[in-house]
């Protein structure tokens, strides 16, 4: 058991190291294109993040700040030499500021076929109500 934990720690360490190396090469994360639309009970964010698996996806909410990041992992054969690249980088990263009406606890996300969908539900008190007009 303890061995396994050690192994896990090592993996984390190497991953951090590789990130540091990437940072030294002044690699900028890619900005994933996103659509944002409003529904009565939620705001939806849809972003294109091809190459990101469920495990490589990180969604964080800190106060009113939503951070989306994902590691781009593409299995390539050994000895591959790249000759042309339009996607250059190993990470997507994007931040949005949320309004106070968002219920942080209820935020959910899923990634499917490289397409990320984040649902930001609104607090019950902020959902639209139909106002009935009474006859006098």
């Amino acid at each position: 058991m303890s061995q396994e934990t050690n192994k896990g720690d090592q993996q984390v360490a190497t991953r951090e190291q590789s990130r540091d190396v990437a940072a030294q090469r002044s690699e900028r994360p890619l900005l994933p294109p996103a659509d944002i639309y409003e529904e009565a009970e939620a705001i939806r964010v849809v972003a294109d993040m091809p190459g990101v698996s469920k495990e490589g996806l990180h969604i964080e909410v800190d106060g009113t700040e939503l951070t989306i990041s994902g590691d781009i992992r593409v299995d390539t054969p050994e000895g591959l030499t790249a000759s042309y690249a339009e996607i250059r980088g190993s990470q997507y990263y994007r931040q949005f500021i949320l309004g106070k009406e968002i219920d942080n606890e209820g935020i959910s996300a899923e990634i499917n076929n490289g397409e990320l969908m984040v649902v930001l539900p609104k607090k019950k008190t902020h959902r639209p109500r139909q106002i009935e007009v009474k006859a006098a």
Binding site: T76, P77, E78, L80, T81, G114
Partner: peptide, 16 residues
């Protein structure tokens, strides 16, 4: 993205 090894050419299509 395009790449090659000794015996094949690889094309990676990013189609989310």
């Amino acid at each position: 993205n395009l790449g090659a090894t000794d015996d094949a050419v690889y094309v990676y299509v990013f189609a989310p």
